[in-house]
């Protein structure tokens, strides 16, 4: 015994502790789990509940002070037309970004999973990882450069003599605006750009698990590529798409920086939360607004879990 592990004392407090841990796996798990559970439980959940509690308070309209009495009045304010508008606008944006990201990421993920080999596999992997981990603000900033009036996109349209096309598009209601950088489309493009890599990775992970023989079998049995895609590939890739959509959806719901820098003056949930807790000092309404994405994501995660999306993370 002592030959194999020479520095092992066979008695002493450390050894007794070690033996105790080995005999009591439950105790071991408990000791391992205690620090992270305490940290996340106190710092994170504690703060979260403190916030939620505040949403049941209200603000006195005259003094601007918080009234510490339980009430649902603040939640009622969420349903005023102006606030309802903000919620609907944000959810529609999150949904459009998610759908667009799924469509764009599918070919990338499919090529990377099925055809890329060796060096190309690495190129695709790094090609997705680099933008994923690049600085968020730098990415937003790059779009400020692209969408600026004197920027590259306008220059491109002018050089191609297509400015009329851009102007026609910008004159459309809702999606248009004075210029790209203050339009709904601008905000949409930035959101799509910034969250796209979060969709590619889980979709690719789910496609990696589809055996190529299954697709060949489908073809051999007479399915057209379109049918194979609809009936074989898509159902198998769905958990990945849902896993990715958790990111794109949640990140869009809570973002307040992108619409502030690129977009019209119409606000999103994140901006509402930010301004109510900051300048307006209306913490209860800010808290109630913060509950909206939590509820939406709660429902979303619950559905995603049922579809088995967490295995694809």
């Amino acid at each position: 015994m002592t030959d194999t592990v020479p520095d092992t004392p066979r008695s002493g407090p450390l050894v007794r502790l070690s033996d105790l841990l080995w005999r009591n796996p439950r105790l071991t798990v408990f000791l391992l789990l205690a620090p992270p559970a305490l940290w996340l439980g106190i710092v994170y959940l504690g703060a979260l509940f403190a916030l939620l509690a505040q949403s049941f308070f209200s603000i006195d309209e005259f003094s601007g002070l918080i009234v510490y009495e339980l009430t649902l009045k603040t939640y009622g304010e969420l349903f005023t037309p102006a606030n309802l508008d903000i919620i609907i606008r944000t959810v529609v944006m999150a949904a459009s970004v998610t759908v667009a990201a799924a469509i764009i990421s599918f070919p990338i993920a499919y090529y990377a999973a099925r055809y890329a080999r060796g060096r190309w596999k690495a190129v695709f992997y790094i090609g997705v990882m680099l933008p994923l981990w690049s600085s968020y603000l730098v990415k937003v900033y790059s779009w400020k450069l692209i969408l600026a009036k004197e920027g590259i996109l306008n220059w491109l349209f002018e050089t191609l003599h297509l400015s009329w096309l851009l102007n026609a598009y910008l004159s459309l209601p809702v999606v248009g605006g004075n210029s790209l950088s203050v339009s709904w489309t601008g905000t949409f493009l930035v959101f799509l750009y910034v969250w796209l890599p979060f969709m590619v990775l889980p979709v690719q992970a789910s496609l990696e698990r589809v055996p190529p023989t299954m697709l060949e079998a489908s073809g051999d049995l007479g399915a057209t590529p379109g049918q194979t895609f609809r009936h074989v590939l898509l159902p198998l890739a769905l958990p990945g798409v849902i896993a990715g959509s958790i990111f794109t959806f949640s990140l869009t719901l809570g973002d307040y920086i992108i619409p502030q820098i690129v977009g019209s003056s119409r606000r999103f949930i994140g901006q509402a939360v930010y301004s109510y807790q900051g300048t307006a000092g209306n913490i209860p309404l800010a808290a109630a607004f913060a509950v909206v994405p939590i509820v939406i994501m709660g429902i979303y995660l619950w559905v995603a879990k049922k579809k088995g999306a967490f295995d694809a993370l």
């Binding site: 439950r26 798990v29 789990l33 992270p36 559970a37 996340l40 439980g41 710092v43 994170y44 959940l45 504690g46 703060a47 979260l48 403190a50 916030l51 505040q54 958790i246 949640s250 990140l251 719901l253 809570g254 973002d255 307040y256 994140g270 939360v273 930010y274 807790q277 913490i283 800010a286 808290a287 913060a290 994405p293 939590i294 994501m297 995660l301």
Partner: peptide, 29 residues
């Protein structure tokens, strides 16, 4: 063990929920 799923959910929650919620909860705490 009991609550294993809850633990992995607890770990993932701070990034699954929008950052603004983590931020504003910490600030008010």
């Amino acid at each position: 063990f009991f609550g294993r799923e809850a633990v992995s959910l607890l770990v993932i929650l701070p990034i699954a929920l929008p950052g603004i919620i983590t931020g504003i909860s910490l600030r008010s705490a």
